[in-house]
């Protein structure tokens, strides 16, 4: 029951525990507790907010959930810690982290709720049962994915003619139609990559939220599986690697078809062979990106941070780098101070990877992406003037131009939006 007289956002327990009613919010019952090595994860599945605490913190919350008073819960936590602890201060810390906020509107079940913190994500259909989803991520499935990765690597190593080249974008005689279809194809492949993350999350009992985000200056589809921090670290690798599992499987299929066609084993239309070459190009770019853009928080980053048992490595890395180059603001210093020693130790060397990677990315944008953007933009802009409104080429050119502009404006808008969400504690 809320107290309308004060503008606070949490609710209070009433009734038999009246002596603690002002101190212990009822929302403490919404906290989930999960072990993580020597530590424990406390979180709110409905808000998508999670923190790591030592064992006394978990004992304290469990005691409150069992109906203990603040004093009793503090005593239990102190017994676990072997030292005196301040339960009120810890509770204030949980409140400051947003973990005691009111249940989100529409958030009824704490198990089926989506793990998104920004409220604008698309809730996806939950029509596939976890049991069905597990078919795609059992041992036989992973054997298939690993086999596909090995097969694709062997074909690329031994058949130079099948290696991707940027010229493979132009798979049709009409360059404009080639570009439009290549972009559409890339969208389909990217969406299916994300669906595989969602499916793997489903098999682990973790819901997903989808959004459009950015990595550096590039737009991305993003699947948020935040609730995965409540399952053990080993079980997190599957969902992290699921997108690339899809990529390598399609890649192996496309390469096998091209190899068979090239050897004269099968007959397919030459245009289909060229389309498969475009598929190979898009997939190889995607896979190389996932392992080379670790510093931009790619899927490979999630694997690395999990292997290093980190909690908040990305912010630790950004803040370490900022501190080295031009120092931190008071707010940033406080945020950095609240990050654990393990994350900060890893960030000391990962910060160098981050800095070199950012310099490399900037260089690549200036050398490759910007010239491509300007030349393609000039080409389609000239088309707009040259073709009539009734021609297909006019509308294809307009579509490409809109896409190019969105690729420049989008990341800037998203950077602003995500900074706002991060400062509100809604998305980390």
């Amino acid at each position: 029951m809320a107290r309308p007289s004060t503008p606070k956002s949490w609710e209070v327990l009433i009734g038999e525990q009246s002596e603690t009613s002002a101190e212990v919010p009822a929302t403490v019952r919404l906290l989930v507790i999960a072990p993580d090595g020597d530590e424990f994860i406390l979180g709110r599945n409905d808000l998508g907010v999670y923190v790591a605490v030592p064992e006394p913190g978990a004992v304290f919350v469990r005691a409150l959930q069992d109906g203990c008073s603040l004093a009793d819960a503090t005593a239990r936590a102190g017994a676990t810690a072997g030292a005196e602890v301040n339960g009120g201060e810890f509770l204030d810390g949980l409140r400051a982290a947003g973990l005691l906020d009111r249940q989100r509107a529409g958030g009824t079940s704490q198990t089926a709720e989506s793990a998104d913190g920004d409220g604008r994500s698309i809730r996806w259909f939950e029509g596939i049962s976890p049991r069905t989803a597990r078919v795609f991520f059992g041992r036989p499935a992973w054997a298939l994915y690993v086999g596909a990765a090995v097969a694709a690597a062997m074909v690329l190593a031994t058949r130079p003619a099948l290696r991707p080249s940027y010229s493979h974008v132009w798979w049709l005689p009409d360059p404009l139609l080639s570009l439009v279809t290549y972009v559409l194809l890339g969208f389909v492949l990217a969406a299916l990559h994300e669906v595989w993350h969602w499916l793997a999350g489903r098999s682990a009992g973790v819901p997903a939220a989808f959004r459009i985000s950015r990595r550096g200056a590039y737009l991305v589809f993003e699947t948020d599986l935040s609730q995965i921090v409540t399952v053990n670290r080993t079980a997190r690798y599957g969902p992290f690697l699921a997108g690339m599992a899809f990529d390598v499987t399609v890649l192996a299929g496309a390469l096998a078809a091209r190899a068979a066609y090239g050897s004269g084993v099968v007959e397919i239309p030459p245009s289909l062979d060229r389309l498969l070459a475009a598929v190979v190009l898009a997939l190889v770019i995607g896979i190389v990106w996932q392992w080379s853009a670790l510093f931009l928080r790619s899927d490979g980053y999630a694997v690395l941070a999990n292997a290093l048992r980190c909690h908040n490595l990305f912010r630790a890395t950004v803040l370490t780098t900022k501190w080295r180059i031009w120092g931190l603001s008071g707010e940033e210093a406080a945020e950095f101070g609240a990050i654990g020693p393990r994350d900060r130790a890893v960030a000391r060397w990962f910060g160098l990877v981050y800095l070199l990677g950012m310099i490399g990315t900037l260089w690549a944008i200036l050398i490759f992406a910007l010239p491509f953007l300007l030349s393609t933009g000039a080409w389609v802009s000239a088309n707009l003037a040259a073709y009539s409104l009734s021609s297909v080429a006019f509308w294809e050119s307009l579509a490409v131009l809109v896409y190019l502009v969105a690729g420049v404006v989008g990341p800037a808008v998203i950077a602003w939006r995500e900074r706002r969400l991060r400062r509100a504690g809604a998305l980390l």
Partner: peptide, 18 residues
């Protein structure tokens, strides 16, 4: 002793736009 609270980052997995 103070019970430290460490924020945990989201698991955010991506695929680039073409």
């Amino acid at each position: 002793m103070k019970i430290e609270i460490r924020r945990v980052e989201s698991a955010r997995l991506t695929a680039n736009f073409p």
